[in-house]
Write a protein that binds this DNA or RNA. Structure first.
Lengths: 141, 141
DNA sequence: TATTGTTATACTCTATAACTATA
DNA sequence: TATAGTTATAGAGTATAACAATA
């Protein structure tokens, strides 16, 4: 019963609204772990590629190096991640035992969330969700 | 040539990345008007429903009333929107002549942007973009 | 009592510029 | 010269609590 929104026919607008709404949902579920979606993505990345550097993580997430600093610092303070110098200037990131446990719990929540998202789409279209989102993000050409 | 991202199979993650990337693109294009995507959506809404109140706009955008205040104040200071008391506590929003002109220019940019987004998706899937995004956002049930 | 607009405030995310120390 | 990590800073966007005026 929401008032009429004239923007609902615009894919970019819908993309933003859908992203914002579903992220808020995910953040709500991750709150019980004391983390947010950003942390969850970071945990999944580092768990899958232990030893990758901050700069590499920044390139993957397309975020500024400067913004990675407080993220890593917070998770390090929490005993979730460790930094190991590999290079004098680079430092490889690895999850601690605590971090691995947190990662498992976060992954469970994320996977349930992702599965639910997908189930919102009628079955006959479900296979197109990833290709369409990928195309919107980065057209093939 | 971006490093491998293990999260690319997750619809919610893709939704966020696609939304962030395309919004940055839109903001870049709107910069020449001195506005951002939020302002553009506001202009389009008020142009289509002149006289609607701040609270109504907040419900449509699902944003907090408190956050509407600086948005309207800024656009009012700029001579783009006017507030007319309708009620003693409510105030109807209308675009000024300047605001209508700005709205036209913003709409042009938005429409071109939206059309380009859609064209990124292979033609055979294009009709499914809106239904799929809508379903992800608010499942029918 | 509920609603509208408002103030104050805080947190997350993002962006830029500039610095250091390494490569 | 270019890269990795860092500091400082600023701007968006969002969230909550509380208040005055009005319905």
């Amino acid at each position: 019963m929401r008032p009429d929104d004239p923007l609902l026919k615009l894919p970019g607008y819908l993309l933003r609204r859908a992203s914002a709404a579903t992220l808020a949902e995910l953040n709500g579920r991750l709150a019980k772990l004391g983390i947010r979606h950003t942390d969850a993505a970071f945990l999944i990345l580092v768990a899958g590629q232990p030893g990758l550097t901050q700069s590499e993580a920044c390139r993957i997430f397309e975020m500024q190096r400067a913004n990675m600093v407080p993220l890593v610092a917070r998770l390090e303070r929490r005993g979730v991640v460790e930094r190991h110098r590999v290079d004098g200037r680079s430092q490889g990131l690895v999850l601690t035992v605590t971090g691995a446990a947190l990662h498992q719990r976060a992954r469970r929540i994320v996977e349930r969330y992702e599965a639910e998202l997908l189930r919102r789409v009628p079955a006959k279209w479900r296979a197109l969700v990833l290709p369409i989102l990928t195309a919107l993000w980065r057209p093939a050409r």
